[in-house]
Amino acid sequence: MIIPEFEYVSPQSVQEACALLVQYGDSARVLAGGSDLLVKMKDGLMKPAYLVSLKNLDSLKAIRYETGTGVIIGARATHNEVMNNRLLQEKYRSVCEAAHSMAADQIRNIGTVGGNLVNAVPSADLPPILIALDARARIVGSSGERTIALEDFFLGPGKTVLEKGEILAAIIIPDQPTTGSNYIKFGLRRAGALAVAGVASSVTVSDGTCRDVRVVLGAVAPTPMRARQAENVLRGKKISRELIDETGRIAAAESKPISDIRGSIEYRRNLVNVLTRRSLKAAIEKGHI
């Protein structure tokens, strides 16, 4: 496999990177881990003339807590860095588990959180759990910085809200009253398999009542999607098995899967139903976020 020719640039600052992206426009792509991009280039699916590497931008790598803001995950953090990060393990273990469900060690060692999000692959494993935890995307551009709900980040397969010259800098998980969260991936192999369907959920439970809930589906719509109607079934209600079953059924109904070589529409809807139930049950019972 041969990678097509390209110009490689490695800016020293985020501002310089943004400026280069403005200058090169559509002929440039951002290179972080390369686990998606380089493969696509070798397959001839993408032929960027410029690769703007983020490798010198250490400010984009840290995972830290900022009072008043929350946990900040630098976009360049690798999946294994997320998986093994103590802060995340203590505060949002489900995110570490989702990172662990991906690919294999070799890819988790180079693939980045930012890459996983910006590629906007419908089956990506991190978006569902991050959206379930109400994560925000911090986007930096040549004219400044903006922060949006990650839920609003994705427009379609391979499409995000990033404008020309913008870089996804970090993901922020705000402090929250959530009592439990969970991500279940259904792949056709225990490692190195894309999700046929994935469901993440987060719940805020007190006195047996579901004060708040988020259910986010992966691989069953053009983008990761909130199952809002399903959430409404449970939100504010006393938790019962029947209600959780109903939530699963509604989530399946509102999902928008396609048939492909990994699974049919009917099978994916079934998985959404089953995984939603299981994910909610785990989020309610496990007692960690």
Binding site: R189, R190, G192, A193
Partner: peptide, 16 residues
């Protein structure tokens, strides 16, 4: 072929 690669033509791994 739709899966002429080792990602979509899945042989069992050590975990499987």
């Amino acid at each position: 072929p739709l899966n002429a690669n080792l990602g979509e033509y899945r042989v069992p791994t050590a975990l499987d």
